[in-house]
Amino acid sequence: MKVILILLTALALIACSEGPESPRGFSLPEGNVEAGKAVFISYQCLSCHTLQGVADSNAEQHLPKKVPLGGDVTKIKTYGELVSSIINPSHKIAPGFKREGYIDDDGQSLMRNYNDVMTVNELVDLVAFLQPQYNLKPFNRTNYPKYFP
């Protein structure tokens, strides 16, 4: 029994090892929220997105319905998730946007690739601006009645 426990512990540790693809050690500098808002406006993000409290009358609509950013969520939007959404928008597409008008024929996001135009500083500032736009709301559990036989 003791040997099995040791083997299971060893397997668990091996499975959790960090390989070269691990995000361990990845860190970007802190961004500037005001500069991030300027990046959001200058890259015309409102052409495809909505963000409560932010408007741009010069932004043309490029999608059938704009993709909302920010607002109430039941799961925190991490720094890494926001960075990934900008530099690799096809990494994770919300189920409601996996349809015509939001993805191409290969199922990839129609979001423009900004990797060759946006500087790292602009990315960091943009994420610093976007992250506080999400409001974590606790998940409301359903209270089922107790049945007694």
Rank of each mutant, 00 (worst) to 15 (best):
K2H: 05
I4P: 01
I6D: 04
L7T: 00
L7P: 09
T9M: 10
T9N: 13
A10I: 07
L13F: 14
S17M: 10
E18P: 11
S22L: 11
P23N: 14
S27I: 07
L28S: 01
E30N: 00
G31Q: 03
G31T: 08
V33K: 13
E34F: 10
E34A: 15
K37G: 06
K37I: 06
I41S: 01
Y43I: 06
Q44S: 14
C45Q: 06
C45G: 13
L46H: 12
L46S: 12
V54Q: 08
D56T: 07
S57I: 10
S57T: 11
S57G: 14
L63K: 00
K66M: 11
V67C: 08
G70E: 11
G70N: 15
K75R: 12
K77H: 14
T78A: 14
T78D: 13
Y79T: 14
L82K: 10
L82C: 04
V83H: 06
S85A: 11
I87H: 00
N88E: 06
H91Y: 01
H91I: 04
I93P: 01
K98Y: 10
I103Q: 04
I103W: 02
D104A: 13
D104S: 03
D105L: 05
D106V: 09
G107E: 04
G107L: 00
N115V: 03
T119Q: 05
N121D: 15
N121Q: 08
L123I: 04
V124Q: 05
V124E: 00
D125M: 04
L126D: 15
F129Q: 13
F129T: 09
F129C: 12
Y134A: 01
N135D: 01
N135I: 04
L136S: 12
K137C: 05
F139G: 01
R141P: 00
R141A: 02
N143F: 13
P149R: 15
